[in-house]
Computed example of a mutant assay.
Amino acid sequence: MRTEQLAIHSLTTKHRNLEEALEAYSTAGFRYVEPYLPLVKAWLEDGHTVEETRALLDSLGLRIIASSELAVECFHASDVLLPNLRANAENVRLISELGGSAMIVHTDGPELVTPESLDPIARALVDLAEATEETDVDIAVEFNASPVVRSLQSGVRVAEIADHPRVGVLFDTAHYHVTPTKLSDINSDSVKWVKHVHLNDMPNTPADLTHRDFDRVLPGEGVLDLAGIISALERNGYGGFFAIELFNAGLWQLPTKEAARRCYESLLPLCEG
């Protein structure tokens, strides 16, 4: 991993608005950012334009790489599915206008989950990709953020069924830790579907008793073999971004610039050189 691949997810820090967050990330050393889409929308609703937002990013030496907001609904009637598809398509287009290249999504699930439940998820992701074919934004399903897609293996299976160049998987080290996913699952067959990566560390508690979100700690403060995971991803072809994403109460209590600085510095030992 190189420093020019580092990014930060805006949910990792507390801030008043998008501008404060971006200034903190730039000061810390980040050049890439993954803002939660409601943060961007609040900024736009406050009277700013997409062009002004891109100008702000440029002035700070930042680029948006990805974002997220809504679930992709897959197991409802058309009166729910069509509005959801339209809303997600609008989000894809907004991410594209901002210069981003990926949208992270999670999904709903049926009352009874079976292996066949992956099929409608794949179809819904393809529908979204085809509805936004004028963009280059990838659709990455987040495993363990769905009642059905619960591991890297099931995320990859969805991508395989979809068989669309813009449909793939988000790999998150916290989800890796608390699911049946193993280091050996990070191989050439799976990594070719990985569109984006979230990095974080996890505490020394049993994985099945560790919360997938709120127990996350800074890289180097936990027990994950992050260097090994990163190496496995890169060795099998991943060359994209690594965005730190935590939901850590201690970080949220810090000033935005201090939290961002700690995040950036925690990633440096994992970088080449």
Rank of each mutant, 00 (worst) to 15 (best):
V113M: 10
G237P: 00
A227L: 11
V137H: 10
V156P: 00
L112T: 15
I95R: 05
S26A: 14
F241S: 01
L251H: 03
V149H: 07
L233R: 01
I8D: 00
H106D: 10
P35H: 13
R31T: 07
A87T: 13
F30H: 01
L6K: 03
E34K: 08
H177F: 15
D119R: 15
R16Y: 11
Y264C: 01
A243S: 14
T12G: 02
D189P: 00
M103E: 06
V105M: 09
A87F: 13
T179H: 05
E20N: 09
I121S: 03
I8Q: 01
E234Q: 07
A145G: 09
L39P: 02
M202R: 04
L125C: 07
L11T: 12
E160N: 08
I229F: 06
V72C: 06
V167N: 04
G228W: 10
Y238N: 01
T210D: 04
V191F: 03
P203N: 09
L268K: 09
A243N: 02
A207Y: 12
S96R: 12
P147F: 15
A259Q: 00
S67G: 14
V80H: 12
A159E: 03
T205P: 00
L56A: 08
L39S: 11
L209R: 15
L251V: 02
E52H: 12
W193N: 00
L112A: 14
E20R: 08
P110D: 12
P255F: 10
R150G: 09
S96C: 11
G222V: 03
